[in-house]
Design a protein around this nucleic acid. Sequence first.
DNA 1: ACTCCAATACTTTAGC
DNA 2: GCTAAAGTATTGGAGT
Lengths: 97, 97, 97, 97
Amino acid sequence: MTATTGHNTGVAPDEPATKFAKDQLRSIVERIERLEEEKKTIASDITDVYAESKSNGYDVKALRQIIRERKQDAAKLQELETIVDTYKLALGMLVDS
Amino acid sequence: MTATTGHNTGVAPDEPATKFAKDQLRSIVERIERLEEEKKTIASDITDVYAESKSNGYDVKALRQIIRERKQDAAKLQELETIVDTYKLALGMLVDS
Amino acid sequence: MTATTGHNTGVAPDEPATKFAKDQLRSIVERIERLEEEKKTIASDITDVYAESKSNGYDVKALRQIIRERKQDAAKLQELETIVDTYKLALGMLVDS
Amino acid sequence: MTATTGHNTGVAPDEPATKFAKDQLRSIVERIERLEEEKKTIASDITDVYAESKSNGYDVKALRQIIRERKQDAAKLQELETIVDTYKLALGMLVDS
DNA sequence: ACTCCAATACTTTAGC
DNA sequence: GCTAAAGTATTGGAGT
């Protein structure tokens, strides 16, 4: 299917298809694409670290599991702290933020 | 149904842990688990159909796209496509007709 | 974009666009759609059980958590059994399948 | 490299738990965690851009579709669309031209 | 090439 | 009703 209408469908602000609206949309798309590019680069860096570690004799799967477990531990800790804060709050040991 | 108290605010009605309440809870859990099991089986069947189709030379990704498009309510689809086309137009991905 | 070619692109078997190939594709699509319909029905049934339980005074969130935990327990048990089988196998207590 | 044994089959080289090996492992884990932290930050930034765009009246789903389509390698996209059109034709979702 | 698993994206659901 | 979170489905990549 092709774009057949020139009139604005109301999905974006600035109803008439002004140059400004175009620029705004373009800006959004470019920002996202830029960020996704960065994200991809970092993901690639991570892959590289694993590859390098592997060539140094480490078991990648084991490494991934360590990372995963540490992440879970951190989450649990965070959760615990939240609970502790809740209790402290209830006991008046913290000011309500 | 069978809850006997009207003002119970706890997790389950009928606070004293009567055998009846236990049975009711057990029934709920079992019904849900049974249904989730069925759901899982069907999901697995779907996977099988795709796998079989693949082995018959079909492109699974393309098949999924067909299913997805057919699933969409026609009106909604049209609406989204209009928006997408509007954006594409603004980005020069389509020529203005 | 529109379909512009009548010739077969080789993604499916039976190169010439025979009625048979059409029927096969249609069959695949219909089977999948049928299964997805069933899956949807079951998901809806699950929702209904939760809703009914709620109206009987049960806390839906708590119920969901029970289900979740039982699922995790089952998975752990499964995992343990796998390990045990591995050991049994190593000890010659099981025949290699 | 640093492994001192040639026949080590374990997870890490340098079996005796030397301080050096510990440091190396620690370094790997920290590098990965650092990179994952950065990745998470960027993912969060992307989420923010979408949220901001939404509050400016844009349809997030449509934006995602635009991004997705632009991301796809043009050739691959063309190929998939050709396949999809072939299937649609067989299903009568497109008129044969 | 194919399977398996991790990562991402999407959908649905719960809480405000 | 909308925002936030959980669960689910799909995709991509690593290993065999």
